[in-house]
Amino acid sequence: MAIPPLVDIRDLHVTFTGGPKPIRAINGVDLSLERGETLAILGESGSGKSVTLRAMLRLNPEKRTKVEGSITVGGKDVLALGSKDLQAFRGRDVSMIFQEPALALDPVYTLGHQIAETIVKHDGGSWDDARKRALDLFERVRIPSPERRLDNYPHEMSGGMRQRAMIALALACNPKVLLADEPTTALDATVQIQILLLVRELQREFGIAVMFVTHDIGVAVEVADRVAVMYGGRIVETGPIRDILNAPRHPYTIGLLKSRAHGAMTKGQRLDAIPGSPPDLANLPPGCSFAPRCKLALPACSESTPDPVEVGSGHMARCFRTEATAPVPA
């Protein structure tokens, strides 16, 4: 028997019921993550990529959210955790970094204090040891003059350094899984690449599994082994990054790659854009949610939702027309 994956998400449905109409943010997501693997979840706003991530830590507002399906992390049934266990689970089993460090960092405490406090709270031990570990973490995330920086408040640091400090905080309790919710989107290009490299390094060093949410294929390429492309609350294609990049099989992935402006284009050449706009989650079309924008759509696409089709080793596409998207042999 194979070892079960570290993270196993099965048939996850998340519906927000707070508004006048239920919003079906996630409609049947299956996802697994192996130890030490980096998976990028790629999608546009409203594709459900962040909601999936938040569901793993149960960060979506519980009263206004209906969650169905199962999420297992290291054998723990996340959806069944009691509030005490959930608290221990957050940070120790799974921790998260955000686009805005302001969400994770407390402005009134120094960074050293925050990290040490987290360590003492989760693992016990003395403040001195915790403080030493905080210093060690700051060194690991390559913060220059870490000793001095530990006594800084979040606002005293630049955006990139804050992001590093947040990563240090997330790693404080040696989590098995690191969730990253667009941590580089708000950063400048030269800082973004530093953080991406850092995530890669830490992943190698700590053997941590990373789930990295992004809207930018380029970012996914820099960090991930595997990519899951989300659209309308479903994973429409998943596979090794090379396969997705070189031989995408879902029309949405194909369209996304083709519509990118890239260096090899001649001046004035028009982009091969996907027509239309992303679906309204309160009003999802029946069948494949990409069908209304899809060039290859058949009437059947608007009637029932396609199941994932295996199109290569570990490469699945949720499409009825995978035969039409197969690469032409050269």
Binding site: M161, T190, I193, Q194, L196, V219, V221, E222
Partner: peptide, 19 residues
């Protein structure tokens, strides 16, 4: 600093350090 779009030739060193 632009992402490479090539999984076999990823960026291995950041061109600049710091902000």
């Amino acid at each position: 600093s632009m992402p490479t779009m090539d999984p076999d030739n990823r960026t291995n060193e950041a061109p600049l350090f710091g902000d």
